[in-house]
Structures are given as C-alpha cells and as structure tokens.
C-alpha cells in the first residue's frame, strides 16, 4: 500500500483507503473516487501539482489537488 502521490506515471492502482475527512470523502465519492475503484495515474511522479487520474471502467479523467492525493492510499495493480 502506498500514497497516490508516490505512484509512478501511467501505473494502474486500486484504492485501498481514503484518509480524508467525511466531507472530502463524500465529494470524492460523488466523483467516483472511492474504495476498490481502479484508476490509472496520468500525471508524473515528481509533479507537485494536482494528480490526474483516469478511470479504468469509463472514459473519465479527474484532477485532484496534491494535498488530497496525499491522503489516498492505493495498491499498484498490473
């Protein structure tokens, strides 16, 4: 398990845990970011800006602030 911000570019991940407050978790959920969702990270590892994610089961891309991405725990999948 690692932080979303520590995942290299173009790696696929599954979300294990959201360490955010209730309000943020709800907002992330309404955008489709929740436990067990599979995503691909589009932004590069070293980027200090927003983390850009692409959903594996739809054609949607989402950008979330670096501060929030640091609170999302994921596992890499192949």
């Amino acid at each position: 398990m690692k932080l979303l911000t520590d995942v290299p570019q173009y790696k696929k991940v599954i979300i294990n845990h959201l360490d955010t407050g209730h309000g943020t978790a709800k907002k992330l959920e309404s955008l489709g970011i929740r436990k067990n969702v599979q995503l691909k990270k589009i932004s590069p590892l070293k980027s200090k800006g927003p983390v850009i994610l692409s959903f594996l089961n739809s054609n949607c891309q989402i950008a979330i602030g670096h501060g929030i991405a640091k609170k999302i725990f994921v596992s890499e999948i192949s």
Binding site: P50, I52, I62, A63, I64, G67
Partner: peptide, 10 residues
C-alpha cells in the same frame, strides 16, 4: 485553501 477537484472534459 480548498483543494482542486475537477473533472476534465475530453
């Protein structure tokens, strides 16, 4: 400062 959450249109 609130964090960014935004859907990126194609």
């Amino acid at each position: 400062t609130p964090e960014l959450f935004v859907e990126m249109p194609s």
